[in-house]
Each structure stands twice: as structure tokens, then as C-alpha cells.
Amino acid sequence: MDESVVVSPDWVATRLEEPGVRIVDVRDPWEYDGIGHVPGAVSVPFDSYRDESDVDRGTLPGPAAFGELLSGVGIAPDDTVVAYDDTHGVFAARFVLTALEYGHDDVRLLDGDYSAWNRAHETTTDEPDLEPTAYEPDPLAREESPLVGLEAVEDALARDALFVDTREEHEFAEAHLPGAVRFDWREVVDDETRRLKSGGELEDVLAAYGISRDREIVLYCNTARRISHTYVVLRALGYDDVAFYEGSLTEWLANDGEVETGLD
């Protein structure tokens, strides 16, 4: 597992006092305040870094809004940022994807979640002292974005790319992109440890669905939350040809895209 993408609780625990290492808690504020959090973590709730307008609900918040958000919690562009939640990392993965898209070079996902951290490491309810920064996102910093739009998805369908749908079975049965395979994003998580399965186990799980490094892969769900987790896991495993359909099925249906139904 590539530590530039996903890091263990022990990795975080040994670096809590290092300058430039910032921990981001994306749970609800009441969880951060009332249940406790990783020492030194700042609160950046999930709803704060997605577009909540009626026009484009659930998608990226825009660089200006994201920059203002990170400035307020004292994060600088050259910081090493590690994000976590208490839902196996699915909400934190969305933060990772957002930060990467807006040009943050070093952002990682905590392997596991708050519950996994709490089993072996101390927590606190103390809030860190924050010194606001002047964070300026740089969306053009990435040489190539994994995000693709409607036209690119149509082209990928014509090329017979592998479309991976990470939604629930009933959602998939109701409507999915032609030829898509359903892959429950939670299959990569060990229910007992709440952490990701071992590298070998992950490869076996992915192979069972035909998800391999020699395929062009396009991920989608409804509003791009669940595919964030799968995207981060594939990056950590070294998959290179992975596209992220930000509009997902919501946009596809709104544009009368062709769909299939059922589980076959």
C-alpha cells in the first residue's frame, strides 16, 4: 500500500508532533466535540467541502470556497494532510479527492477510521490552537485530472472501458450504465479491524470483478462520494488508468443517457 496515498494509524501516531503534518476530521461537529478526536486534528465537516446548492448538489465546492475552508483551519499548501472519518474512510476519501483536485500535493487517507484509531491510540476533546493561513488552491497544479465529464464517458463506453458502479445492489438494479459491474466499495474493508484488507486480499477482491491494471477503469456512483473511496484504494495499489466520473449517474440520467436495469 502506497504510503503517499494511505497511511496507518501508527504512521500518524509517530508524526503528531511534527510541524507540517495536519490531521483533518471530517465527521459531524458533535462527534468531533463530544466523542473526541485524534490529538491535534481540526474539524472540517463533510458538508463543508461539497456543493450543497440545488443546481449541483454534492459535487466539488469550488476552489475559492475550499481555499477559504482550509485557510480557516490553518492548513498551508505545503502541509502533509491526513483525513479520517468514522465510516471506513468514505467521507474522508472525498476530502482527499477534493484536495488533490485543487492542487494540494500531499494529502492522504487514514487507513481505517476513528474507531480503528481509538482501539490503539489516545484521543482528546481538546481543540488545537489555530492560526489562519492564506490558502490559495491551484487546480491547474495537477498535470492530469482523473475527473471526466459526460462526453468523455460516452467516448469511454465506445472504447469498451470497464465501468465500475460502487452503489448498493438495489440502486444498481434500478439503473446503471451499459455493461457496468457492481462493486460494493465496502468490500475492500475488513469489518473486524475496520481497516483496509491486505494487499493480496485486495487484489483478489478486485480481480473477482475484472478490475485489473490492464483495463481502462471508469468509476461512478450517484454523487461521487462512494467512488472517492474506491479511487483512493486503487491509487494506493498503483492503478494508473482510473477515471472518476464526477457527475456520476445523477448527471447521466439528467442527460437521458442510456442505462440498463437488473442485476445481470
Rank of each mutant, 00 (worst) to 15 (best):
Y209S: 09
Y245T: 08
G200W: 03
G257D: 09
F46W: 13
Y209C: 00
E122G: 15
G20L: 03
D25R: 10
T133M: 06
D126E: 15
P63W: 05
V82N: 02
R226P: 09
G238K: 08
L69I: 12
V82L: 03
Y49D: 07
P137I: 07
E52V: 09
A134P: 06
D184T: 02
A236L: 01
A99K: 07
D204A: 11
E144K: 13
H170V: 11
K197F: 04
E101Q: 11
L109Y: 09
E246V: 05
D56M: 08
T123W: 12
V24S: 05
E192D: 13
I211T: 06
L202C: 03
P132Q: 15
L157N: 05
P178M: 08
G200N: 00
P137G: 11
P19I: 03
G200F: 00
E68R: 11
I227S: 07
D113T: 00
V12H: 03
R186F: 01
S198C: 00
A41V: 08
E122I: 01
Y32K: 10
S198W: 00
P29G: 06
H37E: 07
E127L: 08
I227L: 15
L100N: 02
E131T: 15
Y102L: 11
E258D: 15
F244W: 07
L130P: 02
T59E: 05
E136V: 14
A13I: 00
H170E: 11
V44E: 07
N118G: 04
L177M: 14
T133Y: 12
D86P: 01
E31P: 01
R235E: 15
P45D: 09
S115P: 02
G112Q: 10
E127H: 13
E3A: 03
A92D: 04
F95P: 05
V81R: 02
L147V: 15
V21N: 01
F91H: 12
G67N: 10
E216R: 12
A93C: 08
V38P: 04
R225P: 01
G257H: 14
P132Y: 12
L253V: 14
V96I: 15
V44W: 07
G247K: 09
G72W: 07
E127Q: 11
G238N: 05
T166Y: 04
V42N: 06
Y135Q: 10
Y209A: 01
L237F: 06
E31K: 13
L177T: 07
L110I: 06
D138R: 13
A13K: 14
E143T: 12
D240I: 05
S228A: 15
D33Q: 12
E101L: 14
E131G: 02
A236C: 08
K197N: 00
P132D: 12
E201F: 03
D126N: 05
R142C: 04
W117Y: 10
T223H: 09
T98M: 13
D241R: 14
A236T: 00
